[in-house]
């Protein structure tokens, strides 16, 4: 079953009179349980495609379906609802809320989804164990290493058991050992829970984990 379907999607950024085609007609289907890598040089459209699949942005033309629902023309609030329920994000920078500790950061999407306190506690505790950070539950982001922060971000993305987790260069700011640890964690979650992962990267050490590699260049898919 397809989690995401992209039909003839273009995305044009306007800056004054200058127009930049970030995506120039992309067609793509992501099936449930995939572990897919988007590769390509900088400016090829990887991040734009992830943002469109993640309902953070809207296409200039074309359609995007998430779990069969057309999300291309949804308003801001409806897109927030889709993100909250079905999409998890992992960013290149360790995108945690600095005033919340590891536990509270993971708990945030559960709170936004209205999950009851008991269930929240159970889920967050399990996830902290899963990512090997039970002893760091009360640490704030500035008290953790980059690798630990990214593992918290993965746990947060996974907390609501989304249909798809989108990761934009998740290892770009990590050393080799931490990068591998993060990729192994993502692989394990994918295998054990079946959650779909799509991640953008141009690091060959990361690409090797992917079971499907989609190559983008100048806003077009050139290899799949």
């Amino acid at each position: 079953m397809e989690v995401a379907k992209i039909e003839n999607v273009t995305r044009v950024y306007k800056n004054g009179k200058i127009e930049t085609n970030a995506l120039s007609g992309v067609n793509l289907t992501i099936e449930n349980g995939e572990f897919t890598s988007l590769v390509g040089p900088s400016g090829s459209g990887k991040t734009t495609l992830l943002q469109l699949i993640g309902c953070l942005d809207q296409p200039t033309t074309g359609k995007i379906f998430i779990n069969g629902k057309d999300v291309s023309t949804l308003n801001k609030s409806a897109r927030a609802d889709i993100r909250r329920g079905t999409i998890g994000f992992i960013f290149q920078f360790f995108a945690l809320i600095p005033t919340l500790n590891a536990y509270e950061n993971i708990e945030m999407p559960l709170l936004l989804n209205g999950v009851k306190p008991d269930e929240r506690r159970k889920t967050v505790t399990l996830l902290l164990e899963e990512v090997g950070l039970s002893d760091r539950a009360n640490n704030r982001p500035d008290q953790m290493s980059g690798g630990q922060q990214q593992r918290v971000a993965i746990a947060r993305a996974f907390a609501t058991h989304p249909s798809i987790i989108l990761a934009d260069e998740p290892t770009a700011n990590l050393d080799t050992a931490n990068g591998e640890q993060v990729m192994e964690l993502m692989t394990r979650l994918n295998k054990e829970s079946g959650v779909t992962f799509v991640f953008a990267t141009h690091d060959p050490r990361v690409i090797k984990y992917a079971r499907r590699v989609i190559t983008l260049r100048d806003g077009l898919i050139v290899d799949d």
Partner: peptide, 16 residues
Amino acid sequence: TREIGILSAIGMKASR
């Protein structure tokens, strides 16, 4: 600003 972006990305609504 970036934190607002993160919260928005994980589904926090504008009203919240």
